[in-house]
């Protein structure tokens, strides 16, 4: 984790000057600010229902209770599983297709392949509202509206630009000589992909996996509109419904927010280095 964002430069001297002290104070204040929502979510989730009140929002709980988390889990667990059944296949399929695309677009370029790639990339940036109405009509016409398979398809397709981009940039840095040597040995395009490139591309798969997992887990609009059954909707949609209904205690909402945040947060903590790499790679030029 310490190395997640690289390390500070070594050549600087270690003494704190006035400027640095001011900088440090500033960073400390910002640190508190950045942790405020975490405090509110975690602390209030730990309160019992009878001591949760808005006027005591900032106080530590007088007695600890996991009741908020228990209730949140009761309400949200079907949606957690929905999200899992959505995220895992969508991540794997879009990752694999992205690897294949990236390999062809970097090592088997053809006339117009760069333009094609750019046109594919455009799909990564569009506001999804601009395809939503036809998308729903289309899913309805092929019988995939309202069910998980439909939502998986949606996330696979709109994940393709990103996964293709990451793999294309990754494979572009793999020496072309490797492909040449294999072709000289008589290996075909697919053979090279499976036997040479795929084994090399584990780091790219980790980056793509993390990012697709995070993006799809966190996504809201498709989950809200493609899945109609509330028990099957992804966790983000369920959290929003929970926070909008006044019959639910506030500690439960905060606990629910923590539950929703936890998987992506864990990924960030455990695989921070790759997370940062994905941020860089995702900014198109890599």
């Amino acid at each position: 984790m310490a190395t997640a964002l690289g390390s500070p430069r070594k050549s600087e001297n270690k003494k704190l000057g006035v400027g640095k002290t001011i900088g440090l104070i500033f960073l400390g204040i910002m640190l508190v600010f950045y942790l405020i929502p975490v405090y509110v979510m975690v602390v209030n989730g730990l309160k019992t229902a009878d001591v949760v009140s808005f006027s005591r929002m900032w106080q530590l709980p007088s007695k600890l209770s996991l009741g908020g988390y228990g209730q949140a889990w009761d309400k949200l667990s079907p949606n957690v599983w929905s999200s899992v059944t959505l995220v895992v296949p969508a991540t794997i399929i879009s990752g694999f297709l992205g690897a294949l695309n990236g390999y062809i677009l970097s090592k088997w370029k053809f006339r117009g392949s760069d333009l094609l790639f750019t046109l594919m990339l455009f799909g990564m940036f569009i506001p999804y509202q601009s395809i939503l109405i036809p998308l729903i009509k289309f899913l309805q016409s092929i019988g995939l509206y309202g069910n998980m398979a439909g939502l998986i398809l949606v996330h696979v397709v709109y994940g393709l630009p990103f996964t293709t981009l990451i793999f294309r940039n990754y494979f572009a840095n793999v020496p072309t000589e490797l492909v040449e040597a294999a072709t000289v040995d008589g290996a075909g395009l697919l053979q090279i992909f499976f036997q040479v490139m795929l084994p090399l591309s584990i780091p790219a798969f980790v980056v793509v996996g993390i990012f697709q997992f995070t993006n799809i887990w966190n996504e809201f609009l498709f989950g809200l509109t493609v899945i109609t059954n509330p028990a099957r909707q992804p966790i983000t949609v369920a959290l929003n419904n929970l926070s909008g209904s006044f019959s639910v205690e506030w500690n439960v909402v905060m606990a629910g927010a923590v539950l929703t945040a936890l998987p992506t947060l864990l990924i960030y903590i455990v695989l921070g280095k790759y997370f940062v790499r994905g941020i860089m790679a995702g900014s198109v030029k890599g």
């Binding site: 984790m1 310490a2 190395t3 997640a4 964002l5 390390s7 960073l27 910002m30 640190l31 950045y34 942790l35 929502p37 509110v40 979510m41 995070t214 887990w217 966190n218 996504e219 809201f220 983000t236 949609v237 959290l239 929003n240 926070s243 909402v253 905060m254 629910g256 927010a257 929703t260 945040a261 992506t264 947060l265 990924i267 960030y268 921070g272 997370f275 940062v276 941020i279």
Partner: peptide, 21 residues
Amino acid sequence: ALFRNVFLFPYALSFVVTGVA
């Protein structure tokens, strides 16, 4: 390292979580 990680972690969250909090 602490500063870096705290400043970056919100980026890993869903906008919905951010909004609710």
